[in-house]
Measured scan of single mutants.
Amino acid sequence: MKVTIEENEETGKFTIKVKTEDGEEKTIEIPKENLEEILAKLPPNVEII
């Protein structure tokens, strides 16, 4: 699983794009305050880009 994290400076939010092993892609946008909480919940086999 690969996770790409991009900061949107205009909105102050982060866009998180997840690509699973089977090629499925999902995108979510979260507030900056929630980034550490989300990262802590990721499984250890995740590659963060």
Rank of each mutant, 00 (worst) to 15 (best):
M1K: 01
M1C: 15
M1Y: 09
K2H: 10
K2R: 09
K2A: 06
V3E: 00
V3G: 01
V3D: 02
T4F: 14
T4L: 06
T4W: 15
T4C: 10
T4E: 09
T4D: 02
I5T: 02
I5W: 03
I5N: 02
E6F: 15
E6A: 06
E6R: 06
E7F: 15
E7Q: 08
E7R: 12
E7T: 07
E7W: 15
E7G: 07
E7P: 07
N8K: 04
N8Y: 04
N8G: 05
N8P: 01
E9T: 13
E9S: 14
E9P: 13
E9V: 14
E9I: 14
E10L: 13
E10Q: 11
T11A: 04
T11Q: 05
T11W: 04
T11S: 08
G12K: 05
G12A: 03
G12T: 04
G12S: 04
G12P: 01
G12C: 06
K13T: 15
K13L: 12
K13V: 13
K13F: 12
K13M: 14
F14M: 07
F14Y: 13
F14P: 01
F14E: 01
F14C: 12
F14L: 15
F14G: 03
T15Q: 05
T15Y: 09
T15P: 02
T15M: 07
I16E: 00
I16T: 00
I16S: 00
K17W: 14
K17R: 09
K17D: 02
V18P: 00
V18H: 02
K19Q: 15
K19V: 15
K19L: 15
T20W: 15
T20Y: 15
T20P: 03
T20A: 07
E21A: 11
E21W: 09
E21F: 06
E21I: 07
E21Y: 04
E21H: 05
D22R: 07
D22Q: 08
G23F: 00
G23S: 02
E24T: 07
E24D: 10
E24V: 12
E24Q: 12
E24C: 12
E24Y: 13
E25T: 10
E25N: 04
E25S: 06
E25Y: 08
E25F: 11
E25I: 12
E25M: 08
E25Q: 06
E25L: 09
K26D: 06
K26Q: 13
K26A: 11
K26I: 15
T27D: 03
T27N: 03
T27Y: 13
T27S: 09
I28A: 12
I28P: 00
I28V: 11
I28H: 06
I28S: 04
E29T: 10
E29N: 06
E29P: 01
E29C: 12
I30E: 02
I30A: 05
I30W: 03
P31N: 14
P31E: 14
K32V: 07
K32A: 12
K32Y: 11
K32R: 14
E33H: 08
N34E: 14
N34D: 14
N34Q: 15
L35Q: 01
L35H: 01
L35I: 08
L35A: 02
L35S: 00
E36L: 11
E36T: 09
E36Y: 13
E36G: 12
E37N: 05
E37R: 03
E37T: 10
I38Q: 07
I38W: 15
L39P: 00
L39H: 02
L39Y: 02
L39S: 00
L39R: 00
A40R: 06
A40C: 12
A40H: 09
K41Y: 07
K41A: 12
K41P: 00
K41Q: 14
K41G: 11
L42Q: 00
L42Y: 09
L42I: 05
P43I: 05
P43V: 01
P44H: 12
P44D: 11
P44T: 07
P44A: 09
P44W: 13
N45D: 11
N45C: 08
N45E: 08
N45P: 06
N45I: 06
V46D: 00
V46M: 06
V46N: 01
E47G: 07
E47P: 05
E47C: 11
E47W: 03
I48E: 02
I49K: 02
